[in-house]
Design a protein around this nucleic acid. Structure first.
Lengths: 213, 213
DNA sequence: CGGGATCCCTTAGGATACTG
DNA sequence: CAGTATCCTAAGGGATCCCG
């Protein structure tokens, strides 16, 4: 239960003792999107063995990063304030790792929560502030996200709703975010399929969400 | 050799595949201080098995984070630009982990490189800019650091030199950095032992280096 | 002596099945 | 649905040895 320690009195080692174990930071990533039930976490991390998920949840709880809250017959896990302080770090790791993402391999999936965090990472509030409020419906495989940008604020949630532009895309969306692929070509090559609204709005999307590659 | 993957197409998972393995980020931490030889890395990470150190160095090299440079009969390891981009992340992890550091346990050590990174984490350039240039000689157990603050720049290196204030301290120095312990009381209780110069300068030190607990 | 490689053993982690 | 229990593999730990 006590995580393996590094034997050093150092902030970095302490941090790694708390969230350095395999899967731990991915659980945090998903909980940053919102409180989740055990089954939801398992669904968002399809390759995690259930015993490991259970063990990590206990460790994170013991470390004061998450709370286990019974809510009307079901149990939900949510981040404590201390756990939520990891948000900038997780986002920074996402931006850093983004640069090393090659092309997607067949077995690699995109989950709603990971995509939500990716959008948060790529969001450019200053750019968004100068654009009209826009709602996007983004479908990535089975994940349907409602992305609302209003001024410099971003709200991403699951499900759909009234949107200005609805589109479907595969993992190749990465090349749109990185600027390797223009919105025009993304549509022309079928990387992005416009479902509703005018394709021109994909320009706005690409301007609002951008990450260096 | 290929790190175990998470099966997700996501920046965070990619980052963890590159630096999420045990010890990896600590190697990066030490290399952020400067290029190091194999033996120096091993000395700074006393509990790492040598086969693991060798394996991590190969993985980090394969991932393009570090370079293996032969230099006049010896081999040194240094970060690539991509590896150096981890600096803000490592510092942020250090600051976050700092809050969860309890009191030091007997077997926990302080290494020169970890202390250097801790000072970088705690450094407040804006505060320093309004103070006179100052050189500190800080001894933490066996580690002797020369800490030079000039305007908003910080330079930490090993060894000593001409300083305005020289002091020795144990791991309890943490409580000075966090503000739990005033400089006066740090000296009075023996947490900090002034070796040279005027103890008043410890005020300046505590103002220059501060981390929330 | 620096820079590893090898051996053996322990334990975390993965796959799967099972239970309150 | 929310986890345990079990079994097995592979990564990590510790010591020692090797090679240029």
């Amino acid at each position: 239960m006590a995580a393996r320690d590094y034997g050093q009195y150092c902030g970095v080692t302490r941090a790694l003792e708390l969230v350095g174990e395999r899967w731990a930071l991915l659980i945090v990533r998903d909980l940053l999107v919102g409180p989740r039930r055990y089954g939801e976490l398992a669904a968002g991390l399809p390759r995690i063995p259930s015993n490991i998920l259970a063990a990590r949840l206990k460790e994170l709880q013991g470390a004061g990063l998450i709370r286990r809250v019974p809510r009307s017959r079901v149990i939900i896990y949510e981040l404590t304030p201390y756990g939520r302080e990891l948000e900038p770090i997780v986002l920074a790791l996402g931006a850093w790792g983004f640069k090393a993402m090659g092309d997607p391999r067949a077995e690699q999936i995109i989950t709603p929560d990971s995509m939500t965090m990716a959008l948060r990472t790529a969001f450019r509030p200053d750019v968004a502030a100068s654009l009209p409020a826009t709602a996007y419906g983004a479908r990535f495989g089975p994940a349907e996200l409602l992305v609302r940008v209003d001024g410099s604020t971003l709200d991403v949630r699951r499900g759909d709703g009234p949107v200005d532009l609805a589109f479907a895309a595969g993992p190749e969306i990465r090349r749109l975010i990185s600027g390797e692929l223009s919105p025009d070509r993304a549509i022309a090559t079928g990387v992005v399929e416009v479902l509703r609204g005018h394709g021109r709005l994909l320009d706005r999307f690409a301007n609002t969400f951008h990450l260096a590659a």
